[in-house]
Design a protein around this nucleic acid. Structure first.
Lengths: 235, 235
DNA sequence: CGTGTGTTTGATTTGTTTCAACTACAGTGG
DNA sequence: CCACTGTAGTTGAAACAAATCAAACACACG
């Protein structure tokens, strides 16, 4: 959060208070299950997670990939039953806190409240981008968009990452995120490779033509282009 | 907002202050255009609107239909350029206000800030429902879900509406919302009609088997099942 | 009365899924 | 150490859902 605004000491303290506890979650472990009561929120400290829903024909739609620094479970906090499942894609560390802590922040830190709203709106716009992708773009464009988004969000926590990164996802997971079958994801990756847009070897992907990919995928990085000058001043 | 929590007089006054001005917008008029600078937010007072994005092959994805009481343009407010277009589907009335007014509320009314966050999370979950629908369900299920959602949200402002309502949308608009072509939407509506799930005559739709539709469409009304007991107390 | 927008229907094509088989590889236990 | 198992990736052929193309039709509107 300190990347977008200069936080005061009091604000930093309030955020640190959310991260007092730590919980380790193994790869594949489920932090919160769809349709089960859910009291807790989390901040992801380390690792890669995802949120998804299951449809009653057994198919899965991955809603979002979650990276260190992300706040998890806000949407679940407003319902008596969780609307989505939270699951670890790699061994991860989270800091759980309860809804009362969120309410406390909203009461005493107006600017942090505004920042939470800002992040939830960034997430909203990312979701609408994906909605447009699923509704109106080709399989290849969707896979390209996913690769670009993964790269950009990994880069947010690790500036060392440039065009090469480890794709910590199976092709089935890519399919469940893009609304495709694993088989077709495979063909699209292969096609992108043949066209010289990407290279692959042993779980690592290299984006050879980022701007070409971004153009083909209609991709916009929603963590850029913000205007937060209107935020309330720090308390 | 007063449907979810009991507002104090001061809170009501603060919300009323946002609605001092009124602007009439004609059917088809655009309130905010994608990629253009955007300062204003709006509260929709009367009418039906939508938000959409255009892709560069000319196709359109409708992101959300907007009903009286909805706050419009929060996501645009955090960017220097609007991520989506706001357009009136019927003659409508909106109350414009600026970002500073939103900042004011966040500074002085913690519980209203929390409510704004709650509404933006309800919207988020609705968007993820649609994401799952576009990614993983059939054309028929998507059309059914749209009809159910329209009915439920119309009902929120007009309790008189039961199973029959005027579908203020063209089949092309339904297609742009569900990721289908107008031609295919037509066939799906026809099929739902033949199966006895709905009836149609002159722009009016009747849901003959709501629960059957809800089951086929995996539909959940996201304005229900909330748990807001944790909200900060009124200032 | 013509014009345009929206709806309906049919024939054909296309992108994606499904099904099936096969490869590569890591982990496990005998 | 090696057979066994399971998971992930790859490839081809067939089936299918939805798009595309094309043509009528209905109807409101100027």
């Amino acid at each position: 959060m300190s990347e977008l605004v200069e936080l005061t000491q009091r604000e930093r303290d309030a955020l640190d208070a959310l991260e007092l506890r730590q919980r380790h979650v193994r790869r594949g472990a489920i932090l919160q299950r769809e349709n089960e009561p859910c009291g807790e929120l989390f901040i992801l400290r380390r690792g890669l997670m995802m949120s998804y829903v299951l449809l009653d024909d057994g198919s899965r739609q991955i809603l979002r990939f979650l990276f260190p620094g992300d706040m998890l479970g806000i949407s679940s906090a407003i319902y008596s039953e969780a609307p989505e499942t939270l699951c670890a894609l790699s061994d991860s560390v989270v800091s759980p806190f309860d809804r009362a802590a969120l309410a406390d922040i909203m009461r005493t830190h107006p600017r942090l409240s505004a920042m939470i709203l800002v992040y939830s709106q960034i997430e909203r716009v990312s979701l609408t981008d994906r909605l447009a992708a699923l509704g109106r773009t080709s399989a290849k464009a969707r896979v390209a968009a996913l690769l670009l988004d993964l790269r950009n969000r990994l880069r947010a926590t690790d500036k060392a990452i440039d065009s090469t990164f480890v794709l910590g996802l199976t092709q089935e997971e890519i399919g469940d995120a893009t609304g495709l079958t694993a088989v077709h994801v495979n063909r699209m990756l292969r096609q992108l490779e043949e066209e010289g847009m990407i290279a692959r070897e042993g779980g690592r992907v290299t984006l050879l033509d980022s701007s070409g990919l971004a153009f083909a995928a209609n991709y916009v990085n929603r963590y850029e282009g913000l205007d937060l000058r209107w935020l309330p001043s720090a308390a």
